[in-house]
Design a protein around this nucleic acid. Structure first.
Lengths: 240, 240
DNA sequence: GACCGACATTGACCTTGGTCAAGGCCCCCT
DNA sequence: AGGGGGCCTTGACCAAGGTCAATGTCGGTC
């Protein structure tokens, strides 16, 4: 179901990804040659933990969750991919027998472009600049995961949720910002490794304290200073 | 206080690191030109979370822990570096203003080689093969962190400890293996995000169950099958 | 040999967050 | 309008693991 689209439009869209932002038109053209379109209904699986990793992805539309399953079927979301982001690039360098370390499933109807591993490695050889972009993007992910581990182990559920809320504030907004949750609260709970019930309770507590107001997926920040005090923002910021 | 050492010996030692294993003598020579020796007493800090990252490291001797501190000073060890491993390579690609995402401190007296970032990036440009090695090594770390997150969120303390013990079994040993803990138990507890008291209690429980025997830092596995059953090894292995 | 400090162990108690169960709200669907 | 299904909320209860404190063990030092 590919809608007609000019090359320029495609390039523009690709460049939304960190990984591709710096590429020349020529390099993008190379890339685009090996690219395939995929549409995925909400709830459908893109790949599973342990499967051989032959492709990586660029998300054009919709939401995709990356998650692991525990023995009892419990699910922990590692990351929620939003449009304009690439994912599973990293795994391609685990050697020939690289395998996906997580499951990927569409949260809402999604459209993606997929790239073949071999193809991409070939491009990398010819255009080492891309390799540097890739290194940067992996660094960022690495850093993010370390932050997640810290927050999971050193901070309690309230801290994690408040930190998450603060991260969601659109940049540049100064006074009483509002947050629009883009994913169901249950998904956020999983990302923060808490139960939906606990998430509810913490929000209720913050509401009672006058720190926020909640109305469905809209959260109004009433007392941002108090929230920041709650997380005692450490020297460096908690970028995600 | 550098002891005299032939070039060959140095190259041999460098090649113990994944990252350098595939390099030619020429490439190693380039690398070695920008390399400096550092000795670090036990307990001394190598770098701190948030400092500008200008160098990365190869550990020759001793142990180094990478950790984060919570607001209250609680410490979570992210990784324990062992001789022959490199660390902090990844952060160099976070852009010019890259900062260390963790603290690094010597657990025991340590000797390291340090490499300058600019220097190394220069080498990468000339020898793109190294970049691929770096990508692979970062992939591995990424994968490892994802596994840690899974285990922290989806598994309980006993599971984590048992999984850790199973990982420590020297490869190739079949019958009633013995594990020599190389770090104090308190450090292991921190790596697994549990308190030393809890670690003690779990070990005691496993001992009472006849699964292991503990004598100080030596742990004898009595019933490896039962241990494996405890962690119900998922489809794919939990490499660390 | 006595003392000290680091580390480990054990016990009693408490806190956090998970589990189970019962509604409530809202949107869609016919 | 009525009914059904997601999703969220709230309450009662529970369990895992954390905290605090006392005690043990070992190795080094004077």
């Amino acid at each position: 179901m590919m809608t007609p689209m000019t090359t320029d439009e495609r390039f523009g869209e690709l460049r939304r990804a960190h990984l591709f932002a710096e590429l020349t038109d020529e390099q993008l053209a190379m890339l685009a040659r090996g690219m395939h379109e995929v549409a995925l209904d909400a709830g459908r699986t893109l790949f599973r933990h342990g499967e051989p990793a032959e492709r990586f992805f660029f998300l054009r539309e919709g939401l995709v969750k990356l998650f692991r399953l525990g023995p009892d079927g419990a699910e922990k979301i590692i990351e929620i991919i939003k449009p304009g982001e690439t994912f599973a690039e990293a795994v391609m360098f685990m050697g020939l027998k690289g395998r996906y370390p997580v499951n990927a499933e569409a949260v809402s109807d999604a459209r993606l472009w997929t790239f073949n591993q071999k193809n991409f490695v070939e491009i990398l050889r010819q255009a080492p600049d891309i390799a540097f972009g890739l290194l940067a993007s992996m660094s960022r992910r690495l850093h993010m995961l370390v932050n997640q581990i810290e927050s999971l182990t050193l901070q309690n559920a309230t801290y994690r949720l408040v930190a998450y809320l603060l991260e969601q504030i659109p940049p540049g907004v100064k006074t009483s910002p509002e947050i629009q949750l883009t994913t169901p609260k249950s998904a956020i709970a999983s990302r923060l490794a808490i139960q939906p019930e606990t998430l509810s309770r913490i929000l209720a507590r913050l509401r009672q304290g006058g720190l926020i107001e909640v109305e469905g997926p809209r959260i109004a920040i009433r007392d941002i200073a108090a929230l920041r005090r709650l997380v005692q923002t450490p020297p460096e910021s908690h970028d995600g």
